[in-house]
Design a protein around this nucleic acid. Structure first.
Length: 272
DNA sequence: ACTGGATCCTGACTGC
DNA sequence: TGCAGTCAGGATCCAG
């Protein structure tokens, strides 16, 4: 799936053709996502103006005057912008949002871990958004946030980094990459990492995510952007997926371990 | 309150 | 060519 940079790339890609336009039709082909799509969705947003598309963590928030459509791409989802005559839907093209003027957003998600939820009223109070930590690319996120959250925690620092109540948007790839840049062993107990090292880690998170957003996200497997194109691969991954290869910094072999059921890559020479 | 584990689902890939 | 097993970018939910 899309990690934060891929979701942000999608948001930027679909915004110009959809913001300020009215929805002319909604096609639901498959409602069984992580939670079922409300069958009333078409009647709720057809004829309504899409005021904006915002992002919180890896959620996209489609803002209408009468509510918010909360969209998550899960592990395998994509949202594709189609302008002009739409091709016939492929397998797993579950939803179309059609806009006046012809632009169409097509939601594709083979594994169906994503969601499309209608929220009335204050979306930020919704249980899925309420308890989320700060955005990693905004001012509120720094080393002190990580340090405070880590005290007394015995689980691995990588798991702290991927805990959405601590900081949002750091997925499995970028967690490994940020820890590599900061020189921290992903297995280290979160509560035993110093404040100074958390400053370095917070900077590394900002760097990695910032660079990736700037270059349109990273492609692995089946990620495509809103134009259906794969990401640029412009952000070089130093350790993720490179078990056995030479560390770009010290040439030691990169190791792979499992942490919290997720593959984790690191350099035993550079990361302590 | 924190922690690890199971879980949702399809598809790509590996080894026999 | 088929079949079984493993793994995948997420994150919620539940038991202990």
């Amino acid at each position: 799936m899309p990690e934060l940079p891929e979701v942000e790339t999608t948001r930027r890609g679909i915004l110009p053709a959809t913001k300020g336009r009215s929805v002319s039709a909604v096609v639901l082909r498959e409602r069984r996502l992580r939670w079922p799509i409300d069958p009333a969705l078409p009647s709720l947003i057809t004829g309504r103006l899409l005021e904006n598309i915002e992002r919180r963590a890896k959620y996209l928030l489609f803002r209408f005057a009468n509510g918010t459509l909360l969209v998550h791409l899960g592990m395998s989802g994509s949202l594709r912008l189609i302008e002009g005559a739409p091709p016939p839907p492929r397998k797993h093209d579950h939803v179309d949002l059609v806009f006046e003027g012809g632009a169409l957003l097509r939601y594709h998600d083979p594994r169906r871990f994503g969601c499309m939820l209608w929220i009335e009223g204050d979306a930020s109070a919704h249980p899925l958004l309420r308890d989320l930590g700060p955005e990693p690319l905004e001012e509120a996120f720094d080393g002190a946030v990580l340090f405070r959250a880590s005290r007394g925690r015995r689980s691995a620092v990588k798991q702290l980094l991927m805990d959405g109540t601590v900081v949002v948007g750091v997925g499995n790839i970028y967690a490994s990459e940020a820890l590599f840049r900061a020189g921290i062993d992903p297995r280290r107990a979160a509560g035993k990492v110093s404040a100074a090292r958390y400053e370095a880690l917070a900077s590394a998170v900002r760097e990695v995510l910032g660079e990736s957003v700037a270059t349109g996200g990273t492609t692995l497997r089946d990620y495509v952007d809103s134009n259906g194109r794969p990401g640029e691969f412009a952000l070089r991954l130093n350790v993720y997926g490179r078990e056995g290869e030479a560390c770009p910094r010290c040439a030691a072999a990169i190791r792979q371990v499992r942490l919290g059921q997720r593959s984790t890559f690191f350099c035993i020479g550079c990361q302590r």
